[in-house]
Design a binder for these strands. Sequence first.
DNA 1: TTGTTATTTAGGGAAATACCAAAATAAATC
DNA 2: GATTTATTTTGGTATTTCCCTAAATAACAA
Lengths: 105, 105
Amino acid sequence: MSDAYKALAHPVRREILSMLRDRAHTAGELAGAFDLAKPTLSGHFNVLKSANLITVERQGTTLLYRANISVIEDALTGLMEMFRIGEAPAADVAPAKAALLRRQK
Amino acid sequence: MSDAYKALAHPVRREILSMLRDRAHTAGELAGAFDLAKPTLSGHFNVLKSANLITVERQGTTLLYRANISVIEDALTGLMEMFRIGEAPAADVAPAKAALLRRQK
DNA sequence: TTGTTATTTAGGGAAATACCAAAATAAATC
DNA sequence: GATTTATTTTGGTATTTCCCTAAATAACAA
């Protein structure tokens, strides 16, 4: 149960999660999307895995990574609640933002 | 426009923002809420200030810190949008089939 | 079993982070 | 001007993070 917020702090890790949000990707696919050495990406995978933000499954010689959407959601809603985004001053919340908040509720 | 997400990664800084969410606090008040030396807290204030997450106003000998609610909101909604929280997750292709598709490609 | 592909772990260095004590600064008061 | 109060900046250390190259592992194919 490591810190998910720390895992979200790095832009590469956020991008990885964003890519995995659409569909599962292999380690190689993900590594290919960044101008970084594979071991560096592997390190980022480990951080995300430790935070339980992603899961991995072996598929022959390749490893398939998946986003743990519910855990990501929980982390973000945790932040929203901590700062009570959407609550008073409610009048200041823009409609589009309010709609977004309502949807994830 | 520094990295707000990095600023949100530290539990003490999140707690500071949470406290400031209710009302402005002086540096001393905030420092008193944590079991850390004042210079340490001052450092955290700087990180939050650099990320534009808080503002400061001198009030005599004391410094009054305020949360920049709209910026905090923007950061969080930015994350929500990045991961499209609230939207239906993409139907994930079964692992075996995904591997097959990858080889065909 | 030898080789090939995919990916990790190991090891190391540079930079950033988090903390503290001591010194410096700013404003108010004596 | 000197003192007090509030807070920061400075300077230092320990730990962590981020990145790399090289070596190790895992599954598969010849």
